[in-house]
Amino acid sequence: MSSRGSHGRGTRLCRGRQRGARVESSFMGSMPNLETSVTVDTPTTETVSQTRTTGDETLGAIGVAPTIAEYWLEATEHIMTNLDFTPTQKLRGAESLLRDKAYQWWLTVEQGAQPEQVNWDYFKNTLEGKYVGASYVKACRREFMSLVQGDRSVVEYEAEFLRLSKNARALVASNYNKCVRFEEGLRYDLRVMIALKREQVFAVLVDKSNIMEKVKRTEREWRDR
């Protein structure tokens, strides 16, 4: 990580999210088919201490790591979106994946809310407030604000940028702001080549950055011959 990156407890808390990719197979199981009511495997509720003991990373009601809860929600929504679930189906599908204390917690929340309140966005916001927590979001936001490319490749920098920006949406509310922040974090040798024209489409900016990086790499290889 570059010298401008944040350090300490907050960074470690937020960086724990990166290990989430390895838990999908054991944690998610199969998504429910809401049209055919097929019975599926679902996660159980465990505490962090139990998770570390058994190696089975699941959403729990007591001391659950925010990285696990964040990844669970992100992966669940991604799968259901790919299956073209409606918001109502997403809500019912996610409910069916809750177990034990997590399920009891949601029942209590649902019973205390007005029926018209309870939708997919309400579920996500409430679950994030319960399991992800403000301290984790703040840690990710601080890390995002100090994020620079450093020794990363453009591909690695983009992945980290997108991961952290999810908890700093106000800072990248528009395509323009997103481009400005991404460009500011690029290494100087890439930034000066791209800054000649302020790009306002994020995907185009990333493509240009990748091209410039390849050009610089080729130049270095020729010089080293």
Score class of each variant (00 low, 15 high):
D56I: 15
K178D: 03
G5A: 05
T36S: 13
M31T: 06
A170D: 08
L59K: 03
D224T: 12
S209K: 01
R163S: 10
A139M: 07
R9Q: 14
E74R: 09
E77Q: 14
P115R: 05
N210I: 13
T81G: 06
F202Y: 13
L91F: 15
R187N: 07
R92I: 11
E95P: 00
L13C: 05
K90W: 08
V118P: 01
L164S: 03
P115W: 00
V206C: 09
K178L: 05
G16E: 12
E199T: 09
E183I: 01
D151G: 12
M212C: 14
N119M: 01
K178R: 14
T88A: 15
R152L: 10
S6L: 03
D121S: 10
E183F: 07
C14K: 01
I194S: 04
P87D: 05
L59P: 10
W105G: 00
L147K: 06
T76E: 13
A94W: 12
V180G: 04
S165E: 03
E128K: 11
K216N: 10
W106I: 13
K130I: 03
E184M: 10
R163D: 08
I79Q: 15
G8N: 04
L59R: 02
P43E: 12
T218Q: 09
A113G: 05
T88G: 07
Y131K: 08
D207H: 00
Y157C: 04
G129L: 11
G29H: 05
A159T: 07
K90Q: 15
S165I: 02
H7K: 10
V201R: 14
M28D: 05
R181Q: 08
Q104R: 13
H78D: 13
S209L: 03
T76P: 08
S165F: 06
E46M: 15
V192T: 11
G5E: 00
D56Y: 05
W222K: 15
E128F: 09
G5N: 02
Q200Y: 06
L147S: 04
V132M: 12
L190Q: 10
A203V: 10
T51F: 02
T88V: 15
M28H: 10
N210F: 02
Q200F: 11
T44H: 10
R187F: 00
Y103K: 09
F161I: 05
S25E: 08
E184G: 05
R225N: 06
E143N: 04
